[in-house]
Every structure is written in structure tokens, then in C-alpha cells.
């Protein structure tokens, strides 16, 4: 069953320097339970596409459906959780309070809120940190809390915009591994924007390679790696081959300029 479907999607921003084609003729289908990475250089529209799915940007042409609805309807139906590059936790709320934020806005009952906070904290391995304030946590832990916040209201799509981009590689590896476990446990559909080829190959079932000016898809790679992926799978020949293909796709995109 396709969860996200884009057909001939276009998005042009009008700027003072004339129109900018952020997305041109994007066609993509994401199936339920997919882990889809969007990779490409800055300005290739990967974040813009994710924001279109979230209803934060509005395409100027083509169709885009999320769970069979328009992105705005899907947003109102709370179809997805969104994780930004910065954790963006409210400094005046505890970790528990931050995870409770969407639940309060969406009108969950007090008991339900408490239960969900406990459940999602456990899911991201932050049990016991509920009463801590964000500044008492490391950057990686803060980003985990922000993932918990996106998971708390049980949306079946998780959209992540370079969530680990600001973290060092050691923390990033650990979080990638945890994210895969989390994905296996929750069976969510994940859209994941990244700059890193190894990250994209390690995480994804489908890798979407994009290139800039105008932002477009140059290659869609179905990963042949098994769903269960230990970190050392990155040294396997299969992994290296997929990474190579991603690199080739990125290079081809640049040659078009």
C-alpha cells in the first residue's frame, strides 16, 4: 500500500532574483513500512520535498497524496511526526514536558499523556530522564528526546530532516543503529533527509538521489540489504556497492550543471 505518492510535483519559489525551481517533475511512491532516504547536495530540494509532504510548503504543480489525503488534510489528521535538524526542545520544559507538548495540544487525557511519555521515553532509551531539563542532556540525548516527541502521538509516518546532522560521527552511528531498531519495533514509514552516503545506505530500504538547479530526482535505489543490519554490515561488499551507486548518482547530477 502506498503511503506517499508524488506525481509530476513542481515547486517554484518567487524571489527577488526571479523564480527558483526548488522541485521539478518529482515522481515518487513510498510504500508502507519503507525507510526512504533523500540524499543530495544543498539546494537539491530534499528538505523542500519533505516539507511538502508535511504540508509546510505547498507545491505549485502536480499532485501529492499522504495516506490518500492532501498533505494539509494529513497534517490535520496528525498523520506524521516531524524531527528537525535541531532538537528544538523547549528549555523551560522538562524532557517529559517536551514530549507531552504535542499531546497537550492534541487534547490527550492526562493519564494517556503520562502513559505515552513513559512509553516513548522507553522507546528512545531515555527512561529516568523525564524530570531532567534539556540542558542537562547531551546533544545526542536531546535529539533522541525530540524523536520521542515526534513518536508520542502514534503517527504512522516519521519525517526526519537531517536529524543527526549536528552530531559527531560516534554518536551518529549509535543513533542510526537505535533508529533502525526503533523502526523495526514500530513499523513506521520513515522519510529521512541526509547529507551522508553511509548513513543513507545503512538506514534505507529505498535511497532517493537528488540533484540541484532545478531540484529533481536522478536515481531511486532499492536497497538489497536485509532489514536486520548490524553496524558492521557497512564493511560488506553489498553495502559498498550500493554506496558506490549512490555516489555515481550524485556525480551524474553534478555533471548536468
Amino acid at each position: 500500500m502506498s503511503v506517499i505518492e508524488a506525481k509530476g510535483l513542481n515547486l517554484t519559489f518567487q524571489t527577488n532574483d526571479g523564480p527558483v525551481h526548488a522541485l521539478r517533475d518529482v515522481n515518487l511512491t513510498i510504500e508502507k513500512g519503507d525507510f526512504v532516504s533523500f540524499i543530495g547536495p544543498s539546494g537539491c530540494g530534499k528538505t523542500t520535498f519533505l516539507r511538502c509532504i508535511a504540508g509546510l510548503e505547498h507545491p505549485t504543480g502536480g499532485t501529492l497524496s499522504v495516506n490518500g489525503m492532501t498533505p494539509d488534510e494529513a497534517r490535520k489528521a496528525r498523520a506524521y511526526g516531524y524531527v528537525f535538524q535541531a532538537a528544538g526542545l523547549y528549555p523551560w520544559r522538562t524532557i517529559g514536558g517536551n514530549i507531552r507538548l504535542p499531546l497537550e495540544i492534541m487534547g490527550f487525557s492526562k493519564e494517556d499523556q503520562a502513559e505515552r511519555v513513559k512509553k516513548t521515553l522507553d522507546l528512545v532509551d531515555l527512561t529516568g530522564f523525564e524530570k531532567k531539563f534539556p540542558w542537562q542532556l547531551s546533544g545526542g540525548m536531546q535529539q533522541r528526546a525530540s524523536i520521542a516527541r515526534a513518536l508520542a502521538f502514534d503517527a504512522d509516518i516519521l519525517l526526519m530532516d537531517e536529524p543527526f546532522g549536528a552530531l559527531d560521527e560516534i554518536v551518529r552511528d549509535k543513533l542510526n543503529e537505535e533508529l533502525l531498531k526503533l523502526w523495526a519495533r514500530t513499523e513506521k514509514t520513515i522519510g529521512f533527509v541526509t547529507h551522508s552516503i553511509p548513513e543513507a545506505v545503512y538506514l534505507s530500504t529505498k535511497i532517493v538521489v537528488m540533484s540541484p538547479r532545478p531540484g529533481r530526482i536522478t536515481d531511486v535505489i532499492e536497497s538489497t540489504l536485509p532489514r536486520e543490519r548490524p553496524l558492521d554490515i557497512r564493511d560488506s561488499a553489498e553495502f559498498i556497492e550500493i554506496a558506490h551507486r549512490v555516489r555515481e548518482g550524485l556525480r551524474a547530477g553534478h555533471l548536468d550543471d
Binding site: 509546510l56 497534517r75 511526526g81 528537525f84 523547549y90 523551560w92 504535542p102 495540544i105
Partner: peptide
């Protein structure tokens, strides 16, 4: 980013004010 986050929760002006704007302004 903070405003976008609340937008993804489909939060109204009231919730944005009480939960984000007011505490940020303290």
C-alpha cells in the same frame, strides 16, 4: 523551526501563544 513544529501538530494561535510565544518572552 519552532513555529513549524507547532504547525505540524496543527496547533492554533491560542496554543502557539500559551505554549511557545509567552514562555519564550519571559
Amino acid at each position: 523551526m519552532q513555529l513549524d513544529l507547532l504547525h505540524t501538530y496543527n496547533a492554533g494561535q491560542g496554543a502557539t501563544f500559551w505554549k511557545l510565544r509567552l514562555p519564550s518572552s519571559v
